[in-house]
Amino acid sequence: MIQENIKIIIQPSKGWQPINWRELWQYRDLFYFLVWRDIKTRYAQSVLGIGWAVIQPIFSMIVFTIVFGKLARINSDGVPYAIFSYTALVPWTYFSGALSGSSSSLLSASGMMTKVYFPRLVIPISPVMSKLVDFTIAFIILLGMMAYFGFYPTMQIIYLPLLILLMMLTASGMGMWLTAMSIQYRDIKYAMGFFVQLMMYGAPVVYPASNVPEQFRLLYGCFPMAGVIEGFRSILLQTNPIPWDLIGVGSIVAMVLFISGAFYFRRMEQYFSDVA
């Protein structure tokens, strides 16, 4: 059994709760199996299976290349529009998937929550982890496309894990906020679909960040995905120097989102099984 500490005290919890790291560590096997269940069952009984992980960004790329690249002739920082948009779509697809998964996670796990105790924090975090599998596959396709278009990674690629961490942090921070709120307000559930879609235009997915007026650049960077996506382009396609300003602002916002999200989640945790 997990609880090695022999004494458990149950009391009404008031106000802000610290995160019980020790307990989270004790439940690491559960976390592992939840992530693994997510991966294993996501494309169960489908013909294309894991192929779905690349179909979404590739089809978006095709449509964007036609609509924004050819028809609207949006500036793509001097690289072919196809790879310009696909490089952004890889992190963006991850982010939107992880965020939707995370924000709906508590509602879909409510059956489990009302029947057994475990640290609830593992629920919104596990989709953030499991979507990394899709991300990896889409990223491998990206490497193939880079080779086709003649882009080769430089030493700068060592910064990439930092950006990946940043997008995970953002997805889990927002996810914790939204999923804790969705228990009480189902509006979140209905809003998430188009909200995520609209958010895409707040990040430099179909256009380059260089199109944003200079005086709004830092404000623009407050959405951490702006820094992530521009960073991906700059590291892999060498469009611009690494946008440390965007990444810096984004990191601060992401940290704030993550920490406040975790605390808000812990605070609302006591109501989950009663209100869900």
Partner: peptide, 27 residues
């Protein structure tokens, strides 16, 4: 007692590892 829901007031002390079986096949 199973820590699924929080009490409004009062206190519980459990000495030992707890398992709850409120349903078979959770998850």
């Amino acid at each position: 007692l199973a820590q699924i829901t929080h009490p409004t007031s009062g206190r519980v002390e459990l000495n030992g590892r707890v398992a709850s079986l409120l349903e078979v096949g959770t998850g």
